[in-house]
Design a protein around this nucleic acid. Structure first.
Length: 438
RNA sequence: GGAGGCGUCGCCUAGUCCGGUCGAUGGCGCCCGCCUGCUAAGCGGGUUGGGGUCUUAAAGCCCCUCGGGGGUUCAAAUCCCCCCGCCUCCGCCA
């Protein structure tokens, strides 16, 4: 949710943001109108309720008088007054009831519209669609297999040779876009995760293993039930959702809480499975484990003072780079364009690693500055000397396992089909320096 | 899955049987002031959150908020129904 005060004071900037996203700016006017209706309804409801309360306050004592009056005359007088007041109160009650219903409607309408509005785009983000990202930097350069005189294998082939990945049986058991990590593949995942968690913990993060199944409020609050809803798995029988990222349970962790500003920033690193329906990506990246319905991921999630978001976003990006550097991968950093931001993000930086079999850079991590958007929806607030107000949340991938496995296998392969283990990973693999065909 | 108990403003807690004087008791914590060489103790006051209105702003005023949602009633923390969560016991099961 965005700040409604801003919406009232400067609707143009909200409209501009909607346009930059390629979303309907008309919703702004609908929301403004609904907001006015809501406030008007509340004012008249308040007046009526107040009158009702004042009448009610007379009924109690009058009833007592009728019961305890010393003589018939006094009792009768009180009874007459009581009847009159009761008659008024009953009329008023009817009015209150109908106005109450109106107010509820107005609130539901305004809340629904406010919830449908995406976050305000950071003015620094490049404007445009998926293709309009800005390349911020390149780190390392793609390995030149031609110069080395061999034709690289892709990760599917390498995975088979090494006994690391079994996509065929994944499909047999669970369908397309599923896989088994086997043998060294399974060990590699554990090493990647341990390495990521160790690094984040060293950087002051609190390690977390959150639930991957959440209630609707958590999903809604993080902004995944809007345009992204078609990519979310829902368990019909239980009205629960499988999360697509640990961001969801980590953001909802402090929902309905007021955090002392002195305890910020709060940094969590969560390891969880991620489930994605991948609706609308039929035929895209169908080979191997680059795009799958389920994978494990280590995600950083931080709660900060809204004034800190830009600096924190830079830190998250730096930690992501630190991790990829340690794996000796070539990558580039892009500033994602306005039209390609998720509903919650004001700004997003993706890191794309060089993937030899794709002949290009492909997304392996993503860090978003969600400003106060998620915090408002999830009611996560902070208290400082200025009072209580929403804080800001940010998230960033440390490792999305299958994509990093793809990158490692393909980039660190040797002509004989073996794969060199990056030095940083060796301590997590019992000192192992390479994987060899089985 | 069965039986029972519970959910009150940071924490603990009174109130619920018998509806109004309860936006709600008391303690702890916290904040402000007073007092005292300092500290502790003591004294006085304040301390849920949200929305609206007014205002440059604050104060003020109004509404909502006793796990959530409905209902009964002139009036609900209190009565009724549904849901959620926690605890205990039984059953089942990693």
């Amino acid at each position: 949710m965005i700040d409604l005060r801003l919406l009232r004071e400067d609707p143009d900037s909200v409209r501009a943001s909607q346009r930059a996203r390629g979303e309907d700016p008309g919703i702004v006017d609908a929301l403004l109108a609904a907001d006015v209706r809501r406030r008007e309804a509340q004012t008249s409801y308040g007046d009526l309720r107040n009158a009702q309360k004042q009448l009610g306050a007379r009924i109690g004592p009058l009833t007592a008088t009728v019961k305890q009056a010393p003589d018939d005359q006094a009792r009768e007088a009180a009874q007459v007054e009581l009847d009159a007041v009761m008659a008024q109160a009953q009329t008023l009650a009817t009015q209150v009831k109908s106005l109450d219903a109106m107010l509820a409607d107005a609130e539901v309408e305004a809340t629904a519209l406010a919830g449908a509005l995406s976050n305000l785009v950071d003015p620094g983000a490049p404007v445009g669609g998926e293709e309009d990202f800005l390349i911020l930097e390149h780190v390392g350069s793609p390995r030149d297999f031609g110069a080395e005189g061999f034709v690289p294998r892709d990760h599917v082939e390498l995975g088979e040779l090494l006994g690391a990945i079994d996509v065929e049986r994944g499909a047999k058991v669970s369908g397309s876009r599923f896989y088994y990590l086997t043998g060294v593949g399974a060990l590699l995942e554990l090493a990647l995760i341990n390495h990521a968690v160790a690094m984040a913990t060293g950087n002051g993060f609190t390690p977390m293993i959150p639930p991957a199944l959440v209630k609707p409020a958590a999903m809604e609050g993080t902004g995944f039930l809007g345009q992204a809803a078609e990519n979310v798995y829902r368990l019909e029988a239980d009205d629960m959702y499988l999360v697509g990222t640990a961001e969801v349970p980590l953001a909802a962790y402090h929902s309905d809480e007021i955090l002392d500003a002195a305890t910020l920033p709060r940094r969590y690193v969560g390891w969880s499975p991620s489930y994605r329906r991948e609706a609308g990506s039929h035929g895209k990246d169908t080979r191997g484990i680059f795009r799958v319905h389920w994978f494990d991921k280590v995600e950083m999630f931080t709660y900060v003072d809204p004034a800190e978001t830009v600096a924190e976003h830079a830190r998250l990006l730096a930690w992501e780079k630190e991790y990829l550097d340690s794996l000796e991968l070539a990558y580039r950093v892009i500033d994602v364009a306005s039209g390609d931001l998720g509903a919650s993000a004001a700004r997003k930086f993706d890191i794309e690693a060089w993937i030899p079999s794709h002949g290009g850079y492909r997304e392996v991590t993503s860090t978003s500055n969600c400003t106060e958007f998620q915090a408002r929806r999830l009611k996560v607030r902070m208290r400082d000397e200025h009072g209580v107000r929403p804080l800001a949340t940010l998230n960033g991938t440390l490792v999305a396992v299958p994509r990093i496995i793809v990158a490692i296998l393909e980039n660190h392969q040797r002509p004989d089909g073996s794969v060199a283990v990056p030095a940083a990973l060796r301590p997590f693999l019992g000192g192992r320096e390479s994987f060899s065909p089985v």
